[in-house]
Design a protein around this nucleic acid. Structure first.
Lengths: 235, 235
DNA sequence: AAATCACTTCTTTTATACCATATTAAAATA
DNA sequence: TATTTTAATATGGTATAAAAGAAGTGATTT
């Protein structure tokens, strides 16, 4: 028992060097990963005892972690207060994306003013990598796509915006991933990214905002299409 | 002991009729109120045991409540993990408002399409009440101002947007309240509300978005001014 | 006299035990 | 046989106790 504690302690100290991270925060990170990577499918019940045992922690920090994910929208409680992985409808997803579009338009606009040349170069490089034919794995392409958006918002240096954007991205991760597998719209994506990049280079705020919104509204179409096919398949 | 339980049970049932609310959620609501109403000033430490005793609950649900408020940005942890009421700098507040402006512009735009005539009438009535000289209490005027914004966003019927807007509003409540006491800009506020209302009546999306953004950027100026004066006073 | 180290105290963090409720399965009755 | 009721089990909610960590205080040493 003493050994186990020493081991846990060591892990903790190594894992979180800067601002010490609590078990709850670690658990939240783990759960978020699980949900995003579909190890926990939408609708999956999350019994506190089982999950806490699986993560090797007690229920107290796990419950706190789950509260975090509820606010982030990744976990929801049924009418009988049983927690499950959130399973948003297409309508809800579209609502999320509308907010996401506004956030990214804002972030992109600010980035046009605030982004350093280094940041812009990184973003351009990422885009060129995506445009080259080196990326064959769809999952890898999807990750780069997500990173493209994140980098732009981060370039705004608006912390609350970055955090809120991260939360909306997390809610939408799965839907976008599914849509990215189904749609063959790599060409479209690249064109829209190009438009965004050019607005960034020119530091053209209005152009950026329009390009961002257009890009996200394409996303809505793709997801709607993917979802509809999914449903037809099921029936 | 049995009596006490029965009593608590009754309270619980009465307090949360629809989706049964946990003590943590109740506590979060209470704490939020306290913070918004300045019963707990920014920077105030929040020792768990004292607060839980004051609220008459144990520390477990209180801790969960505090986690919620951390995500919402109303509570933050010091480097030594001691919780305190968040005390954002002027720069951070300005960043919040920029996001809030984007959210309200989006909400207003959607409301132009989605708002029912009843909803529009309610909003107009509220605005007229504010414009009449019946409201003398600055706090009351401020509440109505907040409600004006909330009603418009709610008219968008975009749930995640409404929730995120609520959170940003909560973070900004205090700053806006202070600014509302200091600035004599009732006239300006009313004019800008009028512009917003007219855009809503005409269901003019672009006009609404511009009016909303303009209104929020005025808010930035007011808060900056109030904050500067506050600091000068202190020195 | 100042500085440092150890010890005590206070606060957060985690675990565990208990309680109330919801779900289920089984049994009894119609 | 089907339906309803009841009992058992599993699950979330809450409280409390034990553990870990940080800060303050006092004593000792240089």
């Amino acid at each position: 028992m003493a050994d186990k504690n020493a081991w846990l302690l060591k892990l903790k100290k190594e894992g979180a060097v800067s601002p010490r991270q609590s078990l709850a925060e670690e658990a939240a990170d783990n759960l978020r990963e699980f949900i995003l990577l579909e190890k926990l499918a939408p609708g999956t019940p999350i019994p506190e005892r089982d999950i806490s045992a699986a993560l090797g922690i007690s229920r107290t920090p796990l419950r706190e972690a789950m509260r975090l994910l509820v606010v982030e929208g990744l976990i929801e409680y049924s009418s009988t207060r049983r927690p499950k992985v959130a399973d948003p409808s297409l309508e809800e997803i579209i609502q999320y994306i509308k907010v996401l579009a506004a956030l990214e338009a804002l972030g992109g606009g600010i980035a046009c003013v605030e982004a350093s040349f280094v940041e812009i170069n990184d973003i351009l490089a990422l885009n060129e990598l995506m445009a080259s034919n080196k990326i064959t794995d769809p999952l890898e392409f999807f990750r780069l796509d997500m990173q493209f958006h994140t980098l732009i918002v981060e370039a705004s240096k608006n912390e609350p915006l970055i955090e809120t954007h991260r939360q909306y991205n997390a809610r939408l991760w799965r839907a976008r991933f599914i849509s990215s597998r189904r749609t063959k719209g790599r060409e479209t994506t690249l064109n829209e990214h190009k438009a965004i990049s050019e607005a960034l280079i020119k530091r053209n705020v209005a152009g950026m905002e329009n390009a961002m919104r257009a890009h996200l509204y394409t996303t809505i179409e793709n997801i709607s299409e993917a979802k509809t096919k999914e449903n037809n398949h099921e029936t």
